[in-house]
Every structure is written in structure tokens, then in C-alpha cells.
Simulated scan of single mutants.
Amino acid sequence: MNETLVLLPPAVEPGRLVRSAGEGRHALSGASMGTHWSLDLSGDADPQALEALIEAELGAVIREMSQWEPESEISRFNRAEAGSWRELSLGFFHVLRAGLAMARATGGAFDPTLGAVVDLWGFGPVAVKHFPPLPEELEQARAQSGWEKIELDEVNRRACQPGGLQLDFSGIAKGHALDRVARALEQAGYRSFLFELGGELIARGLKPDAFPWWVELELPPGAELAPIRVGLLDLAIATSGDYRRYVDMDGRRMAHSIDPRSGAPLVDAPAAVTVLHSECMIADALATAIMVLGREAGMALAERAQVAAIVTERDGQGWQRTLSSYARMMAES
């Protein structure tokens, strides 16, 4: 049996190595954002208040960033007239600005403006008429997309709708939601918890036994690789993969992720990309970008960003796993 690979951050601020006051331990779960969430929290707390806090934060993200809600902030922006400036909520502006910065840093491998293209492939809230989409429809959708078309007004927290552009935050909003819940829990005085939403995780503080929150990474089905166990100390984990949501076309696996360079779903992409970062929003977006770029260019991005990244691939005869230098440093710490 393969020996478990253990990853620990090489350094953590001493002030973050804390445990919550009290002897309580709370395990809660629920459903939101089209998926499930769970919380493992140490310390004295009112479970009903915890659940209300989490649902409030996740509900705010839905109202701001869900394309499935016709009156959400993102849906209203997508319907706005060409040339109109829209004042944005703090959370929406934060995610849009981060998404555009990620697009710039990745050369467009991450692009939050592909909503029209995503809809044509049936991955959004709009029912598709043709699959695959007609070439002329795809060409028009791509012409309406592009992160360079968005203009931000930082001072007044506004963005301009250039006309027909459809924002899609599916590669970043879930990570933002985890950050948002973690921040709300900390502001409420909780210092030790592990929160999970749709397979992404964020942790704060230490468990009652003074150990980190241990998480074992999910392996793609059939992957005969050593398990990876991560000690989460003020870290978040996000994973993009092709084994949960995909379609088979002409014998090739197409992931439910769009390559902005082609306007088509990823074909024969890595089976999984996992990124660790202090912000789950950044880990979420980077995992998507590395999936799009592939192992070689994706690892170059991980090195530039100085993050722990793990790429798992099918190599035709078996499985291959590649760790960024920071991930290898965590394994050696």
C-alpha cells in the first residue's frame, strides 16, 4: 500500500496557533448554492446561531452572484444596457476585481466574462438549443466575452457593461463564499473551525487536541496513488477536476470547464488540480486556471504565484502526480 504523503505549512504566525475557548464541539451541515456545506467548530457556541450566520453569508453570495437567480446582482448586470455603469455591492466588486486580476495574471486562462459561452454549452442556467453549439452562435458569444472589455471605477465601486457581456463567477464565487463564512465566524469570536462547501475547505486555528485540522484529499476514481493528508493551518483548499461533471463526446472526456482560448470545454485535461492558499477565492480561481493551462504551463503559474499546487493526470498507462515546489516544501516540513 502506498504510504500517505503528509503536507504541513513550513511556517505559521504564532498568533494564529490558537484554540477556541470552551469545551464544546459542534458539527453542523446544510444545503446551499446548489451543494452541501458542513462545519466542525470547537468552543462554546449556540448551534442555531451558527447555522443562521452561515446561511446568511451564503444567502448573500447567492443574491449577488448566482446566474440561476433572475434578480441577483450578476443577472441584473448581465441584462444592463450597453455603456451603462452599475454600482456594485462590496462582495460583488471584490470578486469581480479579483477575477479580472486573475485573468490578467494568467493571460486569460481564467476569465469571469464567459457566461454567454458557458450557456451555449449547457453549463449555465439557460436551456441549450443545439449541442454542440452552432459555430456562428459560438463565434458571437465569444465576441461578446473577454475580460479586457470590463472597465472598473475603483473610487465609486462601479463597473461598465460594454454590451451583451455575461459575467460568470462559477470559478471563483464558491471560494469567496468560504472566505466570507470564515471571516464572519472569526468576527463572531470563533477561532477554531473547519468549514467545507462543495468539496472546498477552509480552516482556522487548531483543534482541541492542539493539532491542525487534518484533511485527506479526494483521489479521482481509479487513481492508484498515495493518499495525501494536509494539515490545514489557516489555509484553504480548492480542487478542480474532470471526474464529477463531464460529458463524453466522440470518445473524449469534456470537463465542465471552458477554455477561454477556444471557447470550448476542456478536452483530456488533468483529472484534478488542487491548490492551497490562505484565501479560498484565490485557490479556487488558480485551480481553474491551472486546469485550463495543463500541467507544464499550469505549474509555471503555480511557481510564479508561490502556491502549493498538485496536478493529477492520466498518462495513458496509469496515473501521474506533480507537485509544485511549495507543495514539495510542505511535504518535507
Rank of each mutant, 00 (worst) to 15 (best):
M281Y: 05
E279H: 14
A309C: 14
V307I: 08
A305E: 15
A297Q: 15
V311P: 01
M291Q: 11
A285N: 08
A309W: 10
A300E: 15
D284M: 04
A283R: 02
L286G: 14
T312K: 04
R295Q: 09
L286F: 10
G298S: 07
E279T: 01
E279W: 14
L301W: 01
A309L: 09
E279M: 12
I282D: 10
L286E: 14
T288E: 09
E296P: 02
A300Q: 15
A300M: 09
L293V: 10
L293K: 09
I290K: 12
L301D: 04
R314Y: 05
G298C: 02
R304D: 11
E296G: 02
T288D: 13
L301R: 03
A309G: 05
E296D: 15
E313D: 13
T312P: 06
I310K: 09
V307F: 00
D284F: 07
V311G: 10
G294I: 12
Q306W: 10
E303G: 08
S278M: 11
M299D: 03
V292C: 06
C280T: 14
R314W: 09
D284W: 07
L293F: 04
A302H: 03
A305P: 01
A309T: 02
A287P: 15
T288G: 09
S278T: 15
M281E: 12
I282K: 10
C280H: 02
T288P: 00
R295C: 06
D284Q: 11
V307K: 08
M281Q: 15
L286W: 11
T312Q: 14
E313M: 05
T288K: 03
E296Q: 14
V292S: 05
M281D: 02
A283H: 10
L301Y: 01
D315Q: 06
A289D: 01
V307D: 03
A308Q: 01
I310M: 13
A287S: 15
A285S: 15
R295A: 04
L286V: 11
V307S: 11
A287I: 09
M281F: 06
M281V: 08
E296Y: 10
S278L: 10
E296F: 11
E303D: 12
R314M: 07
I282Q: 12
T288L: 09
